[in-house]
Write a protein that binds this DNA or RNA. Sequence first.
DNA 1: GACAAAACAGGACAACCGGTCTGTTTTACA
DNA 2: TGTAAAACAGACCGGTTGTCCTGTTTTGTC
Lengths: 218, 218
Amino acid sequence: MRQKRTNDPEGMRRRVLDVAEESFQARGYHASSLGDLMAAAGVTGGALHHHFPTKKALALAVIEERVAAAVDQTWIAPVRAASSAREGVRAVFEAVAAELERQGFVRGCPLNNLAHELSLADPDFRIALAGIFAGWRLAIADKLRVDRQAGRDEGTDPERYATLAVAAYSGAMSMAKTAQDAGLLRDCLAGLEQGAPSSQSGLVERRRRRVLPRPRTL
Amino acid sequence: MRQKRTNDPEGMRRRVLDVAEESFQARGYHASSLGDLMAAAGVTGGALHHHFPTKKALALAVIEERVAAAVDQTWIAPVRAASSAREGVRAVFEAVAAELERQGFVRGCPLNNLAHELSLADPDFRIALAGIFAGWRLAIADKLRVDRQAGRDEGTDPERYATLAVAAYSGAMSMAKTAQDAGLLRDCLAGLEQGAPSSQSGLVERRRRRVLPRPRTL
DNA sequence: GACAAAACAGGACAACCGGTCTGTTTTACA
DNA sequence: TGTAAAACAGACCGGTTGTCCTGTTTTGTC
């Protein structure tokens, strides 16, 4: 009888963050109890407390490591890689809408979900979340500045467009989550592109309002 | 010694709803305990339970009576009374931004605040909240349909524009709440009007980024 | 291999939460 | 005025929450 236990600090920390990220999204911060998280992650109280002294510390880690990464992966990287800012925004809207329709239910935007619940609850939360929003907007605005240097989209103000794009996405996702209808994202994108200047906006296909098959009973 | 007590069912119910509405906005549903609400409203447990058997029933009443009314008063009525849909949307954005700057802090949109926390928590919550969103969009779309019948704004699709307007507002308010900066609402509005067709959009005044004086320490 | 620190186990606890229960007072109505 | 229902008071309870605390085991280092 040897080795009853194998210490794996990074792995255990990762497992806890995985479970916490998931639960905070699905149930929210206050509705997620540490007991549930411990059970779901297969972690004891001692281990959890060792890596995250308080629930707040855990949430802060989720925000700074997971939520920020999600925004990076979903939005910032695709926009940077796109041919233009507008095209990047369009592509992300459509990619997310398609993914949600495939999933069959809408869980909402990770950043906005936590932002609404925690922004007013604690200044540390608020600062961390506000920083992610700012980085998100900055990435879009920077991309648009590059476009303008190339002579494209000169009638568009970068900061304003970035704010509008982020706001439209956040709000559309909020509605889509409440209505459990990913089509609202497509409607919002269509409205966004409708007002686009100097775009050969041909017939954008009429929205197909599809009732999501799995309305997510919690 | 007569009349130790005066029964006032409506008044007591109203007081409870007042306190609950306020607390749900400021702290959220799960973070608001019935004990706090009772103390704040000066109501005993018996009275509270008599009017609202469960916490869920209380929240449902807040949503259906208070949040819906807030959307009506802030958005639907002003849009209906405006000279056009676009003008109505512009006026509401500016009115809210001005009010927030006067207040000195941003508490967020009542509907979105509760929608994020409660949409996935309970189907009854979700249905009630989704209905308010739908009514909000419908009011804007209907107004735009009237505009189009009068020959104005014929290049704009009513449903899509309504969805965009509501989403942009919701998202902008979300960011404004997180950043505690009402100016983001103005940025978003500027971006929205920038893309407006057939509008003699002259110089929209450059945004004055003002740091809000009272950052709200909770 | 000695030893200190990190990593983990698991119980204990005080505070709090939402709901229930019994009892009293007020009010509507016959 | 009698009476039943509505309105309210206030104590009570089982369950849960986040955190802390005391041990035990593993791991890195000399």
